[in-house]
């Protein structure tokens, strides 16, 4: 079974790195298969950008995401352009300060987090993608959360490991609380 994940945002947010960390966690630490492809424009900063990740227990035949089960949106434009692709029953994750969804399908599982604001509070908004990955670890069963954390630590500059670990944990805790809150509501 292949799981397709689409991550969208704009250049400079670390969208490609986010996809890379997910794929790395699946490949190197969960010992599964993953591909990560990217699409971007000519701008180094600010242009729209997306990263497509496929994770599977089998070697992956086709690396494009056509029917994602998970979508992570870090920009309004990315959300609007791509949200229609998300499968029924899929998980929609977004940064609540950057994306204001006009319409959300009741067929989706929806989760949002002020990832950029959290990262700013922790001293560097560049870590918003890492906060988001922590959030992903909590709310989606894509990869082992510890594998993901390990992949984050391996991917960031050694001097910034502690800060990134804290950012990841912040997102993960926030996700955990959301899940608990929903479980309480359901009971």
């Amino acid at each position: 079974m292949e799981t397709e994940i689409l991550i969208t945002g704009f250049g400079g947010q670390g969208i490609v790195l986010t996809g890379n960390i997910l794929g790395m966690a699946a490949t190197l630490y969960d010992n599964r298969h993953a591909t990560m492809t990217q699409s971007y424009g000519p701008e180094a900063r600010g242009g729209s950008c997306s990263s497509q990740v496929v994770i599977s227990d089998e070697p992956i035949l086709f690396p494009y995401v056509e029917n994602p089960q998970v979508m992570i949106c870090m920009s309004q434009a990315g959300f609007q352009k791509n949200c229609a692709m998300l499968q029924e029953g899929g998980a929609m994750l977004w940064d609540s300060d950057l994306v204001k969804p006009a319409e959300l399908s009741d067929q989706w599982r929806c989760y949002n987090i002020p990832a950029t604001r959290f990262a700013e509070e922790m001293g560097n908004k560049m870590m918003a993608n890492i906060v988001m990955l922590g959030f992903v670890a909590a709310v989606c069963a894509l990869v082992d959360p510890e594998s993901l954390r390990q992949a984050v630590l391996e991917s960031v500059p050694p001097k910034t490991r502690d800060k990134n670990a804290a950012a990841f944990d912040r997102g993960r805790e926030y996700g955990g609380e959301i899940l608990k809150g929903r479980a309480r509501q359901e009971h």
Binding site: G19, N20, G23, M24, T27, L28, H33, A34, T35, M36, T37, Q38, I60, P63
Partner: peptide
């Protein structure tokens, strides 16, 4: 471009 930019094992 896809093979060049694609990450995989």
């Amino acid at each position: 471009e896809v093979v060049g930019h694609m990450n995989e094992r």
